[in-house]
Design a protein around this nucleic acid. Structure first.
Length: 121
DNA sequence: ATTCTGACAGCAA
DNA sequence: TTTGCTGCCAGAA
């Protein structure tokens, strides 16, 4: 049965959306980090698949803050124009050089490490 | 129902 | 070191 979760939705997709919306302004994370936080670990592809459907969501999903583990804007092509994602990141102070987030490691925001249980309640 | 693809990531050679 | 294959989950044909 589908039990309701106090943190949000139980659906993998919705979970991805929730986490993505929790990404701080000016920070980025990776598909694998989200998947890992969800407990799936290697289901990073599903995270990307969920974000692919984020446009179908009424809520704004800052999917531009989600990149692959290299810091590459692999999904930029899904923002309509290839430059939209880069523009959004640049708007947040994130410098994108050659489709890659500059100082990605500094900008990286790991949900499983940064989110405290107190912040979730 | 089966097969393939997809905004990834990890591991083997 | 780089390259390639496999695993993962969900949806479309």
């Amino acid at each position: 049965m589908k039990s309701q979760n106090t943190s949000g939705e139980n659906d993998f997709f919705d979970l991805v959306y929730e986490i993505t919306k929790l990404i701080p302004h000016g920070r980025v994370t990776t598909y694998g980090a989200i998947a890992r936080y969800l407990g799936s670990g290697r289901s990073a592809r599903t995270v990307g698949w969920a974000l692919n459907a984020c446009h179908a969501r009424p809520d704004f999903i800052p999917a531009h803050r989600v990149v692959n583990h290299q810091g590459l804007l692999t999904g930029k092509h899904h923002f309509g124009n290839s430059t939209t994602m880069e523009q959004l990141l640049a708007n947040e102070g994130i410098v994108v050089e050659n489709d890659r987030v500059v100082d990605f490691r500094e900008k990286f925001w790991d949900p499983s490490a940064e989110i405290d249980p107190f912040d979730l309640k």
